[in-house]
Amino acid sequence: MTESVHSEAQAPAKTDVFGFLARFAPLIFLIVLMTGFAIGEPRFLTPLNLFNILRQVSIYGLLAVGMTFVILTAGIDLSIGSLVAFAGLVAAAVSKGGVSNRFTVGAGQEAASYGWYLAALAAIGVGLAGGFLQGFAITRLKVPPFVVTLGGMSAFRGGALLFAAGGPISGFEPNFVWMGQGRVLGEVPVPVVIFVAFAVLAHVVLRYTRYGRQIYAVGGNPEAARLSGLNVRAVITSVYVIMGFFAGLGAFVLAARLNSAEAVAGTGYELTVIASVVIGGTSLFGGVGTIFGTVIGTILIGVLLNGLVLMNVSAYVQQIIIGIIIVLAVAFDTFAKSRRRVG
């Protein structure tokens, strides 16, 4: 009896030290990295440069927030890059005043525009619909998420190519473009404001609502969740809808920032986004992870890529580095999981 009480008292302390390290490892890594860059390049730590990095990562960040919901349920979404391209083109066409005059070029189109808010709604609508279709296929047709979203990756890209019919859609009304290129409060880029606002909202949902609880439960042990009376299928479908929402929103902001939408936009985003989420401590096995971690993971990858660009490292090498990071992050997660099981 004494022995069991003793071991029970010790176990949480051990778990907590390890849990603390696991949770703050990305943040520590980020600080080390930023310190290194700051020493090497004095202009690195200026507010302007930091906001530039943040602006660069804000679209990845929006997608990573959505991806956190998906990965928390032990799912994955490979289709987001294609969905971003498709939704961006639809938003662009709406901004241009409709599908028929989507390729008209230059100024003077403001009269025909349906306005930036309708463009945003259209992009988000496309994202929601794409997410729901995939969630439906996963929960009702019982096809694994990896396969469904691999199919979506191909189908949405095909849809985007069809819709674009060869050319980019460029030149939007100023209000639309401001959503991607504008700044508020002097230096803060609008995309950063959007990213931070939705990250905070997502954090509140996951941490404080019943729905957030259900996501962790379904991801941690779907059978136990079902036997506790949770609607597991609805929860799983919903995370792909949420991912779709963020893909649509990200597509809108991306089109605004580039003042253009094209069918090859978003290529390869899925990998960077999944890497951001995983490096931020969210477990690919489901049930473990935070939005805070995802934000840190996103910034970490942004700073790393920014630094590599400054160091004149080629884009090809950057891809190699992201690939290695994703494998190492999962290896770390597997190790952490085996530690959890021991307790």
Partner: peptide
């Protein structure tokens, strides 16, 4: 079938 091993006692109890 019952436990969420990665979650706190509190969360498990109220599930």
């Amino acid at each position: 079938q019952a436990l969420f091993l990665a979650l706190a006692v509190r969360v498990n109890l109220s599930m």
